[in-house]
Simulated scan of single mutants.
Amino acid sequence: MPSGHLIDVAAGNRATLRRAALFYALAGVTLGVAAFVADVVPFEVARFLTPLVSSGSAWGLVALVVGYLAWSHRSAAVVGVGVLALSTVTYYALILFVSRRWLAGVQASGVEGAVLALPGLVSVARAAAFWLVASVGAGVVMGWLGQAVRRGSARFASVASGTALGLLSGEGAYAIFQIVVVWGGPVNPWQLDRLLSAGTQVCLAVVAVSVLVWLRRRSILWWVFPVTASASVAAGILSWHLVDSARMVL
Rank of each mutant, 00 (worst) to 15 (best):
H5R: 12
L6Y: 05
D8V: 08
A25Q: 06
A27V: 13
G28F: 01
L31I: 09
F36A: 14
A38T: 03
S54M: 14
S54A: 14
W59D: 05
L61K: 05
Y68T: 03
L69A: 13
A70D: 10
A70E: 07
S72Y: 02
H73A: 13
R74K: 10
A76W: 06
A77L: 11
V83Y: 02
L84Q: 06
A85Y: 00
S87L: 05
T90L: 12
Y91T: 02
A93R: 03
L96W: 10
F97C: 10
V106C: 13
G110N: 02
G110R: 01
G110C: 04
G113D: 13
A114I: 01
V122Y: 02
A125H: 00
A125L: 13
R126T: 08
A128M: 15
V136K: 07
W144R: 15
G146C: 09
V149W: 06
R151A: 15
G152D: 09
R155A: 15
S158Y: 01
S161H: 03
G166W: 01
F177G: 01
G185A: 14
W190V: 15
W190R: 09
L196A: 11
S197C: 03
T200G: 07
Q201C: 11
L204S: 12
W214M: 11
L215Q: 06
R216Q: 05
R216I: 08
R217T: 03
S219Y: 00
P226I: 15
V227S: 11
V227A: 13
V227E: 08
A234E: 02
